[in-house]
Amino acid sequence: MQMLGKHLLSAGDLDRAQALMILDTTAELATVTERSVKKLPTLRGRTVVNLFFEDSTRTRLSFELAAKRLSADVITFSAKGSSVSKGESLKDTALTLEAMGADAVIVRHGASGAPYRLATAGWIDGSVINAGDGTHEHPTQALLDAYTLRSHICGGQGDLQGVHVVIVGDVLHSRVARSNVLLLHTLGAEVTLVAPPTLIPLGVESWPCSVSYHLDDALMQADAVMMLRVQAERMAGSYFPSTLEYSRLYGLDAPRLELLKDRAIVMHPGPMNRGLEISADVADSSRAVIVEQVANGVNVRMACLYLLLGGAGSQAGGD
């Protein structure tokens, strides 16, 4: 059952077989979610810590629910702001959790790479799951997106061979985009990133995807379009001249929705800025699978915990 390795830090660490195993396990666990008693005894007696250094209601709740459905003991540790401003270092927090006997630590942190430090610095023994680190990665988001794509476009089976996904928005600051590019490529999908050049990272040529500055052209090819959240603060950094101009050039609205193929879906990792990157009518349209993404998130995270913590075995935590 240790086919996954100990930690889940980057979507790029998953090969095709591992990614498919997670998606297939998700599908199996989804049947539990449909039962009236939504609970499995798999992780009984195991301790899962939600360590959130950044506000994130939906991801935190999603992991909490996933762990609870697997009967794990769940602690949530919300340390708002940076470790520095809080006065307790990441290391001391980690040592505290280790002393409490955490089998898995799910970490959300504003600093890129913080989960790597937790996993490799020797502070803790348990598994580390990256729940979003800075502008680096968010692998479980990519997994739930892949699961959502597979169920809508590929009949819920196999990989994403030939599926064309267009990801639109602030790629530069987006951990969702980074993880998705890596995972969707591994699963055989074609990815096109669309953004103004200011929001595309320098060096993107080395990524396994194509890049376009023109949303309308890209939309016509898409089986799915994933809109990224654009923070209005980016305007102050001169990434774009105004939110209005951004919205005009890169926002998904009703007229643009018409450019999509008949069965193409609209995704968003949330939280949405309605009226900025996505118009309200698109967000609420029948093509939008945004609420379904949230539901899939719980099942994907159950699968990750199940596979990482060796749910089938009963060994004590730590290995």
Partner: peptide, 18 residues
């Protein structure tokens, strides 16, 4: 800025020092 700006900083999500 956190590291040299280029393909690696893009992948690691660390702000680039061009």
């Amino acid at each position: 800025a956190q590291m040299n700006e280029g393909a690696l900083s893009a992948r690691l999500g660390l702000a680039g020092w061009p």
